[in-house]
């Protein structure tokens, strides 16, 4: 079992911009390669804030975040975010057609060295039992679940090391939720010793299916919980 730490948060804290009160404080977490973590917690406990902070999408007011032992700032942030991708509950597609949306990720400077691989996408769609016609559809015509599948495909085609999934199936029907779980599993199983994920979910059944470790965020503190 590999033991190297991918991402480490050390006593991180975040204040509310308007009031200055602490929304998250003193949270520490180590994510090792090979770990699949389910994160639970009451609404408003700071799960989204924690994941966004880990992805360096939001500034933190105290503490430190290390990626493979090094702090991340300035020009290194885009490369870090290519490795650590945060996915929101509500998927946002950035282009008007699905295939263009998938290709758009490779037009970013940090991803330009990688080629878009249509065959991989078609294979994933086949494994998920989805029609290849999905690629030609207009993004605006997709259901929430289809959009979420596209958003996850757009992320995992970049071969990130860590996925931060913020309730990706919360608003989806069971079949689509299962497809999302399968897609994430396909990505993870490609390099199970080198990849990791944190999956925010309120569903204990899902926690057992997708994760090997369960954490609960309670009053700004992470508590190890049984699966």
């Amino acid at each position: 079992m590999p033991e190297h730490v991918l991402l480490e948060a050390h006593r991180i804290g975040r204040r509310a911009t308007a009031t200055g009160s602490w929304l998250l404080r003193g949270v520490s977490l180590r994510i090792r390669a090979g770990q699949r973590i389910a994160l639970a917690g009451l609404s408003g406990s700071g799960k989204t804030l924690l994941l966004r902070s880990l992805a360096r999408l939001d500034p933190i007011d105290e503490g430190q975040i290390l990626w493979r032992g090094r702090s991340i700032s300035g020009g290194r942030v885009p490369e870090f975010r290519r490795r650590v991708i945060y996915l929101h509950q509500r998927a946002t597609l950035i282009e008007s057609r699905v295939e263009d949306d998938l290709r758009a990720a490779f037009q970013l400077r940090v991803n330009r060295g990688q080629p878009f691989c249509l065959e991989t996408i078609l294979q994933w769609l086949q494994w998920l039992g989805r029609d290849a016609d999905l690629l030609q559809r207009r993004s605006g015509d997709l259901s929430g679940g289809e959009a979420q599948l596209v958003a996850i495909m757009r992320a995992v085609q970049l071969e990130p090391d860590l996925l931060l999934l913020d309730e990706p199936t919360a608003a989806l029907d069971p079949q689509t939720a299962e497809a999302v779980e399968r897609l994430v599993d396909i990505w993870f199983q490609q390099q199970p010793d080198h990849r990791a994920m944190v999956w925010v979910t309120h569903n204990p059944e899902q926690s057992r299916r997708v994760a090997g470790r369960r954490l609960t965020l309670q009053q700004g503190e992470l508590i190890e919980a049984d699966l």
Binding site: P78, E79, I94
Partner: peptide
């Protein structure tokens, strides 16, 4: 906002 955040999450620079 969602589009901007999505691009940043995929590794876009602030300018992109």
């Amino acid at each position: 906002r969602d589009r901007v955040e999505t691009l940043l999450a995929l590794g876009a620079t602030r300018w992109e």
